[in-house]
Design a protein around this nucleic acid. Structure first.
Length: 877
DNA sequence: TCGACCTGCAA
DNA sequence: TATTGCAGGTCGA
């Protein structure tokens, strides 16, 4: 038996719109609903494998229902703009897929669906209706199944309703379902129903009497309460009207030939460019592979590969050329591919160390790569210097769009050049490495790599120009690009760890954890998994009956804040808090760090990522060395294990209040600037302002509150959260914020202006021209918008601070190098730099750190650096 | 085995 | 209903 799938276009698009986070094409077109729609469509095409497919849409014009009842759907709020914009877009996509879209003036999608499903019944074709709207349940039959879509937490699921399922679930037949709806009405469509009759009564009435007509035929005999009878009497005309409105018209004169619903192949020459434009990578991958000679209108990257012998390298490499390259390790031994024109790619397989040196160690040979930091590390393993770094595609793409989730070459080609890098979909890139399945049918590795070199070349032209146009030249060439080398060096150097001491600390923790575990079991009077918040919640709130009910969707919340409020109510609480503290240290910082210690060097080589954060900060992984405990006494012990090797020492330099200084500078607020210019205690100063007392009368409590406000302001805090943070009434918190903005009026003005600028420009910028695009501000969801506003206020501050410390790192690195010091920069923790210094260089290193950090950026307020040194990180406080 | 979720660590 | 990150554990698909 053949099968047809008909989709309620508006309904599914709507579900997709609200179910999916904000998503935009590179040109700013909102695409989340279209993306979600296609995901749902593809999913059910695969699941149902229909022979026919069509998508029904509503038409804007009034329908016969409006003529019947002019209030029909009258209360509907107009859909958000970025939703409406996607309706023509999905139709464009469906047209390119050669999928029939049907619509008819005067009718709704439901009527078309009803008509098509009836046609199916007549033709003996199975019909599946994909919709988010329960109204269609009236169409269910043995042959017609409604697939009702529910989107929850990003997941799409459907429940299938045939005749049986409707009867089972609702206790009425599909035909009777219309009667129920007519009785109870439908607020969303403004169908009146009978006033006072709700869902329950409507269902029981229809279950008993089957139809509205039957009810009114024998109204006086009905076995109902007088009040229900009264309501029915008064609502008779509304009931009849509602039924007319609710019933789907299954006899719409269709202007479409049923045969045109038969599934056809997509029009690739239209669909592929469209998906490229929308940057739908996952859908591009679904499209059938191109056959040879097929002209699909898309330019493909293709390089002519010339394999050469290593001894010809010097002859080919002219220093006045710009060389785009890829260093490939796929075939076991390194291979070098490079091009000067993007068309001819030279390839040297099995290249020797000397060959690599010819290319990489010559500063006169200008080189453009992709993820240069990785190449630096690989070459350093062979003890080869990498000089003449001219450009890095990945870093440029990061500046162009720091919120991207990844920067693989194929994606960048489609997103920015609208050109396809062939086989891009078949391989996965990790840290810029090419890993792929060389199964049959693929092009051979060499050609793929050659094409990648060509892509690097093309992207360089594009991004070099874009950086100029966007005013990011200095940020790129003076900060990000040289920083790659600094980070590679830091990664390579690593930080020395006292493995024995760390292990010993772990043993001590283990003993205490064992003891705590049995104490907790004793108090709970049973054994359970303390690490499971779910089980813990049951113990605390069900078994021990502690107050403080549910919070999250899995049940009870048991985080430190909740437990803290419970402290004193039961002895187990303190034990659990202690248990949590110790197991955190044990699992994350002892068991997590120990295996990361390089056996040869005794050091941990964390990965410093340059293209991860939305604001310009660096991130650290495997392990993350930017979140080593410091706030609690016991946690801080971990820092004793990070030590300088041999007779060296650690020098720690951290910026004092860098974000507030940035705020004082970019807002232009004189009061705040003065505090910094005069080297005053900014939190005490703020307290004095907000509480209206002289500075010498500021109590520690006042200062600590002011400090919280200072922090909060930077994050775009609201009164609610400040109140929660400080455990004070919202009103009071609100007064603090108001007072703050009153005393720092230009901070207030800055916040407002930044958000306004972000709305008009679509992005915010840091002092050095780093951007963050803010599509959130154009979202229809209030929460998303409010989030966007906070981000708009915070990103320039956090981002400028990131710019500054990055500049400082480049300067410190250059100074250490130019002064031929052996001391090494080893860590960066957002506002803090750590150098492992030789004994006779320590004083010089301190001087360099202070000079280069304090002068990294000229602002209207001074930058101040606190310096400490010691044998371990613990000692540098 | 993988992803969602909760929790907690840092600036 | 405060920004930016990373990671470990549990639990269910």
């Amino acid at each position: 038996m053949e099968k047809l799938l008909i989709v309620d276009g508006n309904s599914i698009l709507n579900r997709a719109y609200y179910g999916i986070r904000i998503l935009t094409a590179p040109d700013g077109t909102p695409t989340n609903a279209v993306y979600g729609f296609l995901n749902i469509l593809y999913k059910y095409l695969e699941e149902e494998k229909p022979d026919y497919l069509c998508v029904a849409f509503d038409v804007k014009a009034k329908t016969f229902r409006h003529k019947m009842y002019d209030l029909y759907k009258a209360q509907r709020k107009p859909a958000p703009e970025d939703f409406l914009a996607q309706i023509p877009l999905i139709k464009e996509v469906l047209a390119a897929m050669n999928c029939a879209c049907i619509e008819k003036e005067g009718y709704e999608a439901d009527d078309l669906i009803g008509t098509v499903s009836l046609l199916c019944e007549e033709k003996g074709i199975e019909c599946r209706i994909l919709t988010g709207d329960k109204d269609d349940l009236q169409l269910a039959s043995e042959n017609t199944v409604i697939k009702l879509v529910v989107t929850r937490m990003g997941q799409t699921t459907t429940t299938d309703y045939g005749r049986q399922e409707v009867e089972q679930k609702y206790g009425v037949t599909p035909e009777e379902y219309i009667e129920v709806k007519a009785l109870m009405g439908d607020a969303s469509d403004n169908i009146p129903g009978v006033k006072g009759i709700g869902e329950k009564t409507a269902f029981s009435l229809i279950q008993e009497y089957k139809s509205i007509d039957a009810i009114y035929d024998r109204l006086e005999e009905l076995n109902v309460s007088p009040s229900v009878r009264k309501k029915l009497t008064e609502g008779q005309s509304n009931a009849l009207l509602s039924k007319k409105l609710s019933v789907i018209d299954r006899h719409v004169p269709l202007d479409y030939d049923f045969a045109s619903f038969r599934i056809q192949k997509p029009n690739l020459s239209v669909l592929r460019p469209l998906f490229l434009r929308l940057n739908f990578q996952s859908f591009l991958r679904r499209l059938p592979a191109e056959t040879a000679g097929e002209d699909n209108g898309i330019e493909k990257i293709h390089a002519e590969l010339k394999r050469i012998e290593e001894n010809r390298l010097s002859a080919i490499l002219k220093p006045d050329e710009h060389w785009s390259y890829v260093l490939d390790w796929k075939e076991g031994a390194p291979a070098l591919y490079f091009t000067a024109d993007g068309k001819t790619v030279f390839g040297v397989s099995d290249i020797s160390r000397a060959g690599l040196q010819t290319f990489f160690s010559d500063a006169d040979i200008w080189k453009c790569g992709y993820n240069v930091k990785e190449d630096l590390l690989k070459l350093h393993n062979l003890d080869i210097q990498f000089c003449g770094i001219g450009f890095d595609i990945m870093l440029a793409a990061y500046l162009a769009e720091p919120t991207r989730s990844g920067y693989d070459l194929g994606t960048l080609c489609s997103a920015y050049l609208h050109v396809q890098l062939e086989d891009a979909a078949l391989h996965v890139e990790e840290d810029g490495q090419l890993t792929m399945d060389f199964g049959s049918g693929n092009k051979e590795n060499r050609q793929i790599v050659a094409d990648r070199v060509s892509a690097v070349f093309a992207l360089h032209s594009y991004f070099a120009e874009k950086l100029e146009k966007d005013g990011q030249h200095t940020l790129y060439y003076d900060i990000e690009l040289p920083l790659a080398e600094v980070l590679a060096d830091m990664q390579e150097t690593g930080v020395y760890v006292d493995k024995e001491a760390l292990s010993q600390f772990g043993k001590t923790l283990s003993e205490r954890i064992t003891g705590l575990t049995s104490e907790i079991y004793e108090q709970a009077d049973e054994e359970f998994n303390i690490n499971s918040p779910k089980q813990l919640g049951v113990i605390l709130f069900d078994k021990l009956k502690l107050p403080g009910g549910k919070k999250n969707k899995n049940g009870y919340s048991t985080n430190a804040e909740v437990l803290g409020r419970l402290a004193g109510k039961h002895p187990v609480i303190d034990l659990i808090l202690e248990y949590r503290k110790l197991t955190k240290l044990q699992s994350t910082y002892v068991e997590g760090l120990l295996p990361m210690i390089d056996l040869k060097t005794g050091r941990i080589h964390s990965n410093f990522n340059q293209t991860v954060t939305a604001t310009g900060r660096i991130s650290s992984t495997e392990p993350n060395l930017q979140n080593i405990p410091v706030r609690t006494e016991l946690g801080r012990e971990i820092r004793r294990m990070f030590i300088a090797e041999g007779d060296r020492c650690l020098v720690d330099a951290d910026y004092s209040q860098i974000e507030l200084r940035v705020l004082a500078h970019i807002s232009g607020d004189k009061t705040m600037q003065e505090a910094f210019v005069n080297h005053l205690d900014i939190h005490a100063q703020t307290a004095s302002q907000v509480f209206g007392v002289p500075i010498e009368q500021v109590t520690p409590a006042m200062r600590s509150r002011a400090k919280a406000v200072n922090f909060g302001i930077v994050y775009g805090i609201g009164a609610f959260s400040l109140a929660q943070d400080l455990h004070i009434p919202i009103k009071e918190a609100d007064a603090y914020i108001k007072g703050y903005l009153q005393h720092y009026p230009l901070v207030d003005a800055y916040m407002k202006k930044t958000v306004e600028d972000a709305r008009t420009n679509g992005y915010v910028s840091t002092l050095m021209g780093r951007r963050r695009y803010m599509p959130e501000l154009r979202a229809s969801n209030r929460n998303v918008q409010a989030f966007g506003e906070r981000v708009a206020m915070n990103a320039p501050i956090q981002g400028t601070a990131a710019d500054i410390i990055k500049a400082a790192m480049v300067r410190v690195y250059a100074r250490l190098k130019s002064e031929k010091l052996k001391s090494k920069l080893i860590l960066q923790v957002h506002d803090e730099l750590i150098v492992e210094a030789l004994p006779d260089e320590t004083d010089r290193v301190k001087q360099i750190l202070r000079e280069e950090m304090e002068n990294a950026c000229k602002m209207n307020v001074p930058l101040e650096v606190d310096l400490h040194s010691g044998k371990s990180w613990f000692d540098t406080k």
